[in-house]
Design a protein around this nucleic acid. Structure first.
Lengths: 187, 187
DNA sequence: TAAAAATCTAAACATTTGTTATCGTTTCCA
DNA sequence: TGGAAACGATAACAAATGTTTAGATTTTTA
């Protein structure tokens, strides 16, 4: 147990004392399936670590259409990290698609980590780099692979996703309509 | 002058001594317009800081078509950062579109900075965060804005770009054909 | 557990975007 | 500096993708 402890130890050198002091500043929360964990227009002041469940990141456009931007799985950190960093109002919603348990890391804990954990800055760097690589891969794929190819390889990024989220959300993530995805699957 | 000095000072607290020792590990290079600075298939072991000029990042797909992934301007760091981090062969080319002067930061200097600059890890974090925010914005825009809207706002990200790169590369960056961009401009 | 909502597929049609070819202009470089 | 290459616009046609509507099935929830 204490999954976040394990993940942090894999990333940086951190003593049990440091870990305890850091995690004492966090709380564990559970959200029922379908609950909005974080809403747009507010400045995001938390980062979430997922112990159990699945979180969808989505954005609502001017016509009111929802676009699925991302799925976050167990043992991952998730937030509107861009606006967390910039301390600007969020454009995203975070929604639990299953009953979900998270560790809530408030901004104060993150900042405490940067100054008081020996390798706090390094951990921040590694997390930013991890998501940078993920985004780079996404952007690259959107240039050089077809929607069908991106569909066929989606489980490389989100294992077992087909059994956990409805197909129309996958279509939305891929940037196509659910009708079109249905068509592509036939061929 | 010494633009990289100024940029680093804006990001972190760094002494003149630290700066000197760090920059002594770098060299300045110039590339003529159209030169390939970094080619695919090799592991990228340099990060470039642009003193003067403009670098295009591009990827060539299986049909041999080039896709413009990014433009890097003066006073910015650029690399196939994803594969620099992962120490994997690059998919990208870096091409000077104008006569370009860069500061070459080899991997050894970056690693030296992480261990010997007081705020080296922080600088790494800030750079990764900076590009994360840029990429997040790009991904977001691809979901909620039309190609025309993205074209109309491109100078927010790349000031004066219309006077520096051919339109068909902008079309490629936007993910559309040059013919189609030509059409969109009429409406 | 039954009604309501969500989900997926399908077909027909509309719109967007890509492809090919042509042409006049501009830019480049030998 | 002059020929060649690159560039941007345009038209006609083709392919990909979106929209609307409908219906059957599954899932949710009251």
């Amino acid at each position: 147990m204490d999954q976040i402890r394990r993940v942090m130890k894999q990333m940086i050198n951190v003593s049990e004392d440091e870990l305890k002091n850091f995690l004492d500043q966090t709380i564990t929360k559970t959200f029922k399936r379908q609950t909005i964990i974080s809403a747009p227009d507010a400045i995001p002041n938390n980062i979430y670590f997922i112990n159990r469940g699945l979180i969808r990141v989505l954005i609502t456009d001017h016509e009111g259409t929802e676009h699925t931007i991302h799925f976050a799985l167990e043992n991952q950190f998730i937030a509107d990290y861009s606006n967390f960093i910039q301390q600007q109002p969020s454009f995203y919603s975070l929604q639990a698609l299953e009953d979900t348990e998270v560790v809530v890391l408030p901004r104060s804990a993150i900042e405490w980590g940067y100054t008081h954990l020996t390798e706090g800055q390094k951990m921040g760097r590694l997390i930013a780099e991890y998501y940078f690589i993920y985004q780079d891969d996404r952007i690259k794929n959107r240039y050089v692979r077809t929607p069908k190819e991106r569909y066929d390889s989606i489980t490389e990024v989100f294992p077992n996703i087909h059994n956990r989220v409805p197909q129309h959300m996958i279509a939305s993530y891929l940037g196509i309509t659910p009708i079109h995805l249905s068509r592509l699957k036939k061929s």
